[in-house]
Design a protein around this nucleic acid. Sequence first.
DNA 1: GTAGGGTTAG
Length: 549
Amino acid sequence: MLKMMMRNIAAASFYCSSRRWRGGMPCLHSNSTFVVFDNNYFAFFHSQPSKPIKSTRTQLEQPPVRNSPKITNVEDAFNVFDRMLQMRPPPSVVLFNQILGQVAKLKHYSAVISLYNQMDVLGIGPDVCTINILINCYCHLNQMGFSLSLLGNFFKLGLEPDVFTFNTLINGFLLENRVAEAAALLHKIMRGGNCHPNVVTFGILVKAFCMKGNTSAAIQFLRKMEEGACKPDLVVYSTIIDSLCKDTLVDDALNLFLEMMCKGIAPDAITYNSLVNGVCKLGEWKEAARLLNEMMSKNIFPDVFTFNVLVDTLCKEGMVVEAEGVVGLMFQRDIDHNTVTYNSLMDGYCLRGEIGKAQNVFELMLSKGSMVNVVSYNTLIHGYCKLKKIDEAMMLFLDMSHKGLVANTSTYNTLVGGFCKVGRIDDAQKLFSEMQACGQLPDVQTYSILLDGLCKNRQLSRAMQLFGEMEAKKLDINIVIYNILIESLCIAGKIESARDLFCGLSSKGLEPDARTYTVMINGLCFEGLTSEAGNLLIQMEEKGCSPDG
DNA sequence: GTAGGGTTAG
């Protein structure tokens, strides 16, 4: 099955590189396209001419606008903008909007704002579109306050906010989980009469339901839309298909996918990528191969996302050599690749403890300039921590800030866990304090890592103190936390306290899971309380929690 | 020329 998939990948890559394909499977011998590098892998990497990171797909889909050069990086944007600012008379605001829009598409939101400020200084007035672009940038920078204050500019300039403005703001509120304000704004535009919600508005709401983990509400909303005047489009269907895949309800996703096509809505690469990702994560390679074939038969060619999904899944399944094969093909066929490609590959090596190879990928990325991101560092730091090489991990941690990258909660969680693993509990606790001083809030996972570390290093009283801190902070304490504590109490011979915690779970609204029962049963048996342990085993089965081996 | 959907790390 894997070979079949690799043949599909080879065919896909052939199509991507040739762009001449007119349907049917391109004829390629599998042995000539199945590339495995192993030790020579990096030699191959280095021999390739460097190519821009920018996606060729985007270049194809967005023909250059007349008078406006294609912007692929922020530096170009600043240069073009400078030239435009010096022109007398200055070019139309439409041209400025084109540049601002392109920089926003590159996700350089702060750059957009600083470019706009230069316009403003020279007295070049914005129009509705300019303000909308700025509002969107502030939304993505999590600065809704500034987004909302820009509304004042409309009235000052005698302009009217439009449906783009409202959709952008509703999306901004929902991204910050400010549902009530999003709803209030939606009601306001529905009452206003001048401006009507459109399919994009509904798409934003569907996405919000999905982000909250409530896919069934999203489906209900979809059904309502189907009955109404504003019919759902490809984006609305794809959002739900992706959410179903993330819920591992791949069959439901495939059914909705068929239903969508029956309604005459053609899928695109994004729809297929969600499905391919969904089936890959469930290990359904055969289905993945079928979907790859199907998409190509519809002249939809796999893009960098598709390939990255395949690389990542192969790596997670431990098939790093096959993943190398895919990456090799991406290079050989000049298919776009990006930081995600390398990060997945690095993670694949780390999972197998092949830290040297992971480090090589990392250095390759460093040599390519802007490719390394926080995830790259976190992945490699995790790799070192796994091998108990905490000092190397800390070196990388220090290196991050030199590169201008800010360590996030995930970085700290990995390192706190790394220190715990080697028994350096004081260093773990020190880093735990340090992260808070740096403005990175510990999450439930941080606490569980540190709690587990304290317990495993026989620091039960410090663990209970930390647990008290969690309760005081009203953190959403989950069953994992209790499992750690119950196990630790059992090991310390404090079966009474362990039993108290176990019995108190339901009052906290928590259900014991298989792990809870296992540690409790183990503790009881160790104390010779075998009949109580037996009762617990029965109770476990009665509650529908299957015992494992 | 501006708004909504897909890939990576603890």
